[in-house]
């Protein structure tokens, strides 16, 4: 933890709170969707759970950013009263590993859109493996499992990867990221242009 600035940690926590609040405000129907459609009703929006780690990794660009931010996000979820309780922290870590693995594969050097989308999919993979056991998906028909998995992958790529990048880029334009890696890169790009 020594190479982490305190403000980076607080920023990650704050981002988690924002997404927690917006998530609650915009998607109160999530539970009802699941009630009518079964677990698959949740899949299209599942990527929202990974978005914080993608944004944090993209903004801060340090080894461990995806994993730590997802762990922080999960802890914040517990504090916000997510009814899944303390187990969420474990789930967050598992999700974070998926995204972190993708960034690690690029040696934390490449933050192009495709890498971010892959990282979102990485979280989708690890979270799905966990869900197979904890949620008992394993008891479903293989075709149903496959459908769930594919939708989750797409959601991870689009909502976490693509939307995460779009939001971060919009944020970089506001100048508030000027002391973070992404903001510095943006400033350099602007100066060169």
């Amino acid at each position: 933890m020594n190479n982490w600035r305190l403000k980076e940690v607080i920023v990650m926590a704050a981002l988690s709170v924002v997404f927690g609040v917006v998530y609650l405000a915009f998607l109160p129907l999530g539970g009802i969707l699941v009630g009518f459609m079964g677990p698959i009703g949740y899949e299209p929006i599942f990527g929202i759970w990974f978005i914080v780690s993608i944004i944090a990794a993209y903004i801060i660009r340090k080894p461990g950013a995806a994993f730590i931010s997802e762990t922080i996000a999960a802890t914040i979820e517990v504090m916000l009263g997510n009814a899944l309780g303390p187990i969420i922290i474990l789930v967050g870590m598992i999700q974070g590993i998926g995204a972190e693995a993708v960034f690690a594969a690029t040696k934390w050097k490449n933050y192009a859109l495709w890498v971010l989308m892959l990282a979102g999919m990485g979280s989708a993979v690890t979270s799905f493996i966990w869900g197979m056991f904890q949620g008992g998906y394993i008891a479903f028909a293989p075709s149903y499992i496959l459908a769930m998995f594919v939708i989750r992958l797409i959601s991870g790529a689009l909502i976490a990867g693509w939307l995460g990048k779009a939001i971060s880029d919009a944020l970089a334009k506001t100048g508030v990221l000027s002391s973070f890696a992404l903001g510095k890169e943006y400033k350099k790009g602007k100066k060169a242009a």
Binding site: K7, A13, V18, V22, I167, L171, T174, V176
Partner: peptide
Amino acid sequence: QYKRFIVPLLASSIRKAERTAI
């Protein structure tokens, strides 16, 4: 619209986070 809401929220949280850290 989601982006329009979230960007100002994130921007102000990031500033708050920096001030709090200091």
